[in-house]
Each structure stands twice: as C-alpha cells, then as structure tokens.
Nucleic acid binder design. Structure first.
Lengths: 244, 244
DNA sequence: CGGGCATTTGAAGCAGATCAATTACTGTGG
DNA sequence: CCACAGTAATTGATCTGCTTCAAATGCCCG
C-alpha cells in the first residue's frame, strides 16, 4: 500500500524492511524464542505487562474480551508485527494473542528495549513504526466496518491478507486462510453465514476460486479483481451517517 | 476504568497523570502552541509527517478519508492526548485532526522528541503510553461496534465522553456534546436518525435529560445508569459471529 | 423576522441476522 | 483402508433492526 518495503541499507531513521527490523532487534536486545502451534495462547489478556512480542513466523489473531463475555477479533498479525503493545499504558495486556498455526514468536523485555534504544535510536523508531502501523490498520478496519457492505468487507479482508503476504515476499495467488468462517465473521462484524455467502458470490463471479478440497484454500487469480469487486458492490452503497 | 489517574510525584517509569505529562513535555522539548476554533483542521491527512500534536485544551475528532470519498471518524481526543501518531510509520499523516471547538494544541517535533527521550526516558514512556492507550481505545471501539446494538453504542459513547471528562477533573453531570448527530452516527456506525432515536429513548427512560434549549446539552444524573441501560438493551443481543 | 440547518418522529423497505437443513471435510478407531 | 462421528461450510427461508425516505418542528443567526 505504502512504500514500506524499501531502504536497502537503511539510514538510522528511515523505514526498515521487515527482515531488517528483525535483525536489528536480534542484535540489540536479548530474545526469548517460543515455538507455538495453532490455538496456543501467546499473550493472556489481563496478565501483567512486561514483554513485547515480535512475530518471526506464523499467523496470529488478537482477541479482545469484554467483561460480559463478548469477544472480538481486533487484529491479525504477521511476520515482523509487534504484539502486546496495548499493555504499555495500563500495565496489563488488553487482549489475547492466539496463534492461528505453527510459528515462532520472540519475546523481548520492554525495559530492555528502552535501555537498548538509548544507544540504538533506530530500534526505537522501528517500535514506533510498528505501533503507528497498527493504529493505521485499526483505522482502516473501522472505516471498512462502518462504510462498506458485507460483501465488500469480505473482499477487503482477502485483499488485506494477500497484501500482508506480498509484503513479506510470499505468493498471493494461492492463499490458505487460517481462520474459520466464524472467526472471519467476527473480525468483520458479520455472521459466518454472511461470510460464506460473500465468498460463494465472489467464486461465482470468478473473482476467487476454491481449491478442489477444503474451502479454506483460496485461489486469487488477480488481487486487483478484489478491488474492482469492492467498488462494484459499493455502487449500492451502505447507509451510515455521512459527515456534515 | 483503570487506575490511570494516580502517581502523585511519579517515579520515572510509572504512569503519569495527564497534567504531569504536559509539564514533562513542556520542560523537555520546544513547543509550538496553536489556538484553534471549531472546525479548524489541526492535521491534514496526507501531509508529510514531522510533528506530533498534544491536546492542551479543547476537543478534537480524527477523521480517516478513503480514496473513494468515504470518511470515518476514527477517534476523539481530549486534554493530554497525542495526535498524529499514525504518521510515524508511513511518513505521512493518516487522518485529519479537526477541532470540535476552541482550544490550544501543542506541536512538538518528533525528531526533537527522540533526542529529548535520550536524557528523559519518562518522556518516551509517556509517548508510548499515549499510543498504547489509543490502541486500547480503538479495540474497545471495534468491540462495541461489532457486538453491541445501536442503542447500547450510543449509551457507550456518552459514557466514554463522561469518563474522559471525569479523568480530567471536569464535571460529568452536565455534558455538552460537541458533535452533531451526524458526526456521532458516523463515529458509531449508524445513521443520524438512529442516534436521535436512541437519545430519545434514553431520555424517555430517564437515563439522560435534555437541557431546556439545545439538544446538545445533556444532563446525566448518574453515569452508572448508562451502564445498566447498555446491559438492558443487550438482553436482546446483536448477531455477529461468536467465536469457535 | 425569516432562511437555513439540526433534530425529531413516523412509515416503509432492505441488508443482513436468525433459524433450519443438507453437504462436505477431518480425524479416529476398527 | 474404510466406516463413522463430529465439526465446518453451504444454502435456503424467514425475520428484524436499522436504514431510507419523508415531513414536521425547533433553533440559531444575520
């Protein structure tokens, strides 16, 4: 989306590539590695804040729990993303981080990070960029949620996932969703049936194709088609208050 | 909500009170003050990132613009809040900051902030806390948006606004909304008519009262009643996918 | 005092939720 | 390797909360 995949060598304050950030962290602070499998809980909501977690491999969802038992997927995280950032302010993690498949995450002490930042400002900027990116992403999610109809949100979800893969140098034509229809629906603010219908509609429109077995393998001939699909759907726009 | 209004003197790494953060910033970095009036644009989306903005007085909304002209209020900001944080990652501000009435905002250079942070770690933690708080808030907004029916979201909005005022030592029984029904609706993902009806319903239920003239002055006898109202409404729950 | 905008309120329509039933896939034990 | 149980996904029919459309009222400001 933006030009975040640049900076070959990278001067101290410029934006770093995902791999460069991982190297930088590795070189600056002690890291505790942890291998996880699907459904492993990496961060428990409510636990005292101490570490930040950086995704080395795998896919993760962030889940917010309300007091009354409502739960909400509030974010997805890929290689190079930081997790646990919402714990800095209150001293406790604000949401659960759950692995969507096997992977490796790095735990680094926030205190150690602050220390290291004194001598390595680039580390600080990398962390700030991670937080900033998450804010931007949250705002995009909010925008999509409030202004797009269900079908467009599902298409936007696929596009987002594909973009995340592409940014990390992975192929985007064959995508394996790591989430059930229910999880996707929860993230997008709709029911699992609506997700299913949206996907069926996209498949019928040749925007995506399902792999022979298993409805979670999705073939996306051209990501750009998702964008057109979104715009098509929005010819009949949704009705939330338009400003002024 | 949390115990964020503590720390009388405040050791370097503990959470600071809003006024303490403002003092700290003032003592550590050069500040450019700006007086604004309602509808003044403090930050223009897309402009090159350079400064962070701290609210000294007034109320502000953050608006995200999509390429296709959709716009979405993604946040509200009060005294002590930082704005422009979404610009760090991409080098450009991601949303417009618009004043909702008169106030004073402080512009501080991000570079200067990084410099000052070297000698004043507390400043860094204050900034991180601000970002972290915004992430938490975004997640709360998402949760509310996806799991609560319209009436509950409006009540939650009032409760949020009252809590923000209380945290800043202001009275919460008489609240003056600085936003139109359309703005509120946009923020909450519903139409202005639905906002109006929700408020009417709350007034009918004695949860709030309107001041004699001007439907933006709202009397909230007891903030706690808003919470009960939300739970009442949720007896008939909304249907977004529940996880697993 | 009057024009223009914000808000309220009512009536009707619809996108998406809910309910329900079938099909497809995954893992497990024989 | 196959049968079977349990879960995930699809698809259809119906229902409903919220949007849309419409109209009246109230309020601010020149």
């Amino acid at each position: 989306m933006h030009e975040t995949t640049r900076s070959p060598q990278g001067h101290p304050f410029g934006p770093l590539h995902i791999a460069e950030v991982l190297q930088l962290v590795q070189a600056s602070v002690p890291i505790q590695r942890r291998l996880v499998r699907a459904d492993d809980v990496v961060i428990h909501a409510g636990q005292p804040f101490a570490n930040l977690y950086i995704v080395n491999t795998g896919f993760y969802k962030l889940v917010s729990l309300s007091g009354e038992g409502r739960e909400q997927v509030v974010g997805l995280h890929f290689k190079g993303d930081w997790m646990g950032l919402d714990g800095i302010a209150g001293g406790h993690y604000g949401s659960e981080a759950v692995a969507l498949d096997t992977g490796e995450i790095w735990a680094v002490s926030y205190e150690a990070l602050l220390q290291a930042a004194m001598s390595t400002p680039a580390l600080l900027v990398a962390m700030h960029s991670a937080m900033s990116r998450e804010l931007v992403r949250d705002h995009e999610a909010l925008l999509s949620l409030c202004t797009l109809p269900a079908d467009a949100r599902v298409a936007g979800f696929l596009r987002y996932w594909a973009a995340a893969l592409e940014q990390r140098g992975l192929r985007t034509d064959h995508v394996t969703l790591r989430m059930s229809r229910a999880e996707i629906g929860n993230y997008l603010g709709m029911t699992l049936e609506t997700v299913s219908r949206a996907l069926s509609r996209m498949a019928r429109g040749e925007v995506i194709h399902f792999a022979e077995k298993g409805r979670r393998e999705i073939h996306i001939p051209q990501v750009q088609a998702l964008t057109s699909f979104i715009q098509d759907v929005c010819a009949t726009p949704v009705g939330a208050a338009t400003l002024r």
